[in-house]
Write a protein that binds this DNA or RNA. Structure first.
Lengths: 159, 159
DNA sequence: TTATCGTTGACTAATGTTGACCTACTGACT
DNA sequence: AGTCAGTAGGTCAACATTAGTCAACGATAA
C-alpha cells in the first residue's frame, strides 16, 4: 500500500537520477493523469518534498506551454553551503524540527548515520542539561542547540 | 512476569533479529493492537529502550501511510567496552587529555576524522558556554565535557 | 517508604488526498 | 495594439488518517 505522494516523489527523483541532471521539467496535468490523481497533488508533492531546505527550487509557468521545473542546487563553494546551513537551521531548534533536518541531511548524503547519531546524542544531552541542571527557558535551550548544530555542520561542510 | 514494555521491546528486537537487518518499520496502531495496548505505549517503549544513547535512531511520519522506523547502528553490547570507555574518559576531561584521547581513538580506527571533528567542535562549544555564558567552575566544565564524551562514545561503540 | 518505571487515555499535531475556485500566460482574431 | 477564449498552473479548505504529548495513576523495585 504505497503512498501516492511517495510514488510521485520517487518518479521525480528518477528523472533526476538518470544522468545527474540538475533540472527536470514536468507538466502538472500530464503527471497527475499518469498517476491517476488530481493536479493539485503534484503541488503537494513539490511543496513537501522538493523544498529549498532539501536543496531544490521550483520554477513554473502557467498558460499555454506551461511547465514546472525542479532545480536541484549543488552549493558548490563553501560560502554557499555555509549560508545554506545557517538558513535551514535558523536561530532556534526544536527536537521535531531537528529530527527532520537530520533525516534530510542524511538523505542528501551530507552526513552519515554515525554522524547523525553523535549529533542526536549531543543535542539531547544539551537539552537535558539545559532543562534539569541549569533550568533554562525552552527559548534559551533552543538557541543553544541551534548554535551547536550550526557549528557542527559548518565544521563538517568545510572539512 | 514479563512486562508489556519488555514484550514489545523483545518483539522489536526479533524484527531486527536474524539477518543483519539494521532498520525495521512498524505502524504504531497495528503494533499497539497486536499487543492489546494503547498506541502511546509504543512511544514509551521507543523512548525508553531505543534511544540514540543506545545506538538507535527513530524516524516517523504521521498521517496517511504513516510509519515508525527504527534504525540500529550497533548490535553487540560488550559490557567491557562500555566499562572501558568510562575508564579511559574518567570523571573529568581537560582539553589536552581529550586531544590525546581522540587521537588515540582515531589511530585505532574507532572514530574517523569527521567524527572527531564533530566531537571537538561540540566539546569546545560546551567549554565556551560553560565559561562565558554560565560562569561555571573549571571543575564543573570538566565534568560536563567528560559526560558528554562518554555519551557520544558509548552510543558509537556499543558495536 | 519512596523514587522510578510502566500504563492509560484524552487531547494535539502532522501528513496525505481531493475538489472547487483562482490566476496567469499564449495565440488567434480583430 | 487590444481583446478574448483556451490552456495551463496555484491556492485553499475540508476531511481522513496517522503519530506525538502529557499528565494522572498504578506497579515495582531500592
Amino acid at each position: 500500500m504505497p503512498s501516492l505522494t511517495r510514488e510521485i516523489e520517487r518518479y521525480i527523483n528518477e528523472l533526476f537520477g538518470a544522468d545527474e541532471e540538475s533540472v527536470v521539467s514536468v507538466r502538472r496535468k500530464e503527471l497527475a493523469e499518469s498517476f491517476g490523481c488530481v493536479p493539485s497533488q503534484i503541488n503537494y508533492v513539490l511543496r513537501s518534498r522538493f523544498t529549498p531546505e532539501k536543496g531544490y527550487l521550483i520554477e513554473s509557468q502557467r498558460g499555454g506551454h506551461g511547465y514546472i521545473r525542479i532545480v536541484r542546487l549543488s552549493y558548490e563553494n563553501p560560502e554557499e553551503r555555509l549560508a545554506h546551513i545557517n538558513k535551514i537551521v535558523g536561530e532556534r531548534l526544536t527536537a521535531p524540527v531537528c529530527k527532520k533536518l537530520l533525516t534530510s541531511l542524511q538523505e542528501r548524503g551530507l552526513i552519515n548515520a554515525r554522524e547523525r547519531l553523535i549529533i542526536e546524542v549531543v543535542l539531547r544531552y544539551a537539552e537535558e542539561l539545559g532543562r534539569s541542571e541549569f533550568d533554562l527557558s525552552s527559548y534559551k535551550r533552543e538557541l543553544i542547540q541551534a548554535e551547536m548544530l550550526k557549528r557542527i555542520l559548518r565544521s563538517l561542510m568545510l572539512a
